[in-house]
């Protein structure tokens, strides 16, 4: 009997049991808070480098290759542009986190429409934290928000422009502002009624670059004074790396 109970506990401990595909389980919790703690706790840097990787979805082995390539790149942190998962399942969240953790640097994950499926919103909040968050690192402000309007049935407050207005409010010590959201404005999955207000807000508050995923194709365009960049998916075997030094910003695309 004792043997069986022990065996059962071992099986449960190593994750052999799954009670439901969308169960809220696992040890990964509040990862953004931990990433921030590490990032802001380290020696401040005048010049720094971060990477922006696209949709991972069904391209986990490609993502693993991206992580290997990124190891040589010496980035201070990584941003994943959403659609970490295809089905929004707990296990896929775990695979995504495991892949990003291979780099040993802090990482931040944008909420993608696939990640919100099923219990996805609760899984995201449990694993990473709130969908909308921002921080300032070495004089550059990073602002993340949820732009998956269609996923929630176009409720009118996705993206949450009220929140964004506050997050983008001018601050004296900020040289650059970058925003990160999954669906780019103008895409059919972005609330039509909010495209113009968002574009105007980003222009008014001097956003340098607005980063997006979702379309699985690299684009880099200037519109209304703001640079809009979408990333390839990981299937496209490319990612972006960004060098920031004061007000100087250089975005480069790496293929692997």
């Amino acid at each position: 009997m004792r043997v069986w109970v022990t065996l059962l506990l071992v099986c449960a401990g190593c994750g052999a049991f799954e009670f439901h595909p969308y169960e809220l389980r696992g040890t990964h919790r509040d990862l953004h808070a931990r990433s921030l703690e590490r990032l802001l706790g380290a020696e401040p840097k005048q010049a720094f480098r971060f990477a922006v990787v696209g949709d991972m979805q069904l391209f986990l082995d490609d993502s693993a290759a991206a992580m290997r390539d990124l190891e040589q790149r010496g980035v201070d942190f990584v941003v994943q542009m959403g659609d970490l998962t295809e089905f929004g399942s707990t296990q896929e969240y775990e695979w995504g986190v495991e892949l990003l953790s291979r780099l040993k640097v802090p990482f931040f994950v944008v909420m993608g429409n696939h990640d919100a499926l099923g219990m996805g919103q609760k899984l995201y909040r449990r694993t990473f934290g709130p969908e909308s968050f921002s921080f300032t690192y070495s004089g550059t402000r990073f602002v993340f928000f949820d732009s998956n309007s269609r996923e929630y049935g176009f409720p009118g407050d996705i993206p949450d422009l009220q929140w964004l207005k506050t997050a983008l409010a001018p601050e004296p010590a900020v040289h650059n502002t970058f925003t990160f959201s999954h669906v780019p404005p103008g895409n059919g999955d972005f609330d039509d009624a909010l495209v113009e207000p968002l574009v105007k807000l980003q222009q008014k508050e001097g956003v340098a670059i607005s980063f997006h995923g979702h379309v699985h194709q690299y684009h880099d365009v200037q519109a209304h004074g703001v640079r809009y960049i979408t990333t390839d998916s990981m299937k496209g075997r490319s990612y972006l790396w960004v060098d920031v030094d004061g007000t100087s910003v250089q975005v480069r695309r790496a293929t692997f």
Partner: peptide, 24 residues
């Protein structure tokens, strides 16, 4: 399950033994 199968077929190195979970 479907998501494990699909992910395994496309990403055998990452998914590996996590293709399966156990039921008793």
């Amino acid at each position: 399950t479907d998501y494990r199968l699909v992910q395994f077929v496309r990403n055998p190195a990452t998914v590996n033994v996590e293709l399966f979970t156990l039921a008793l």
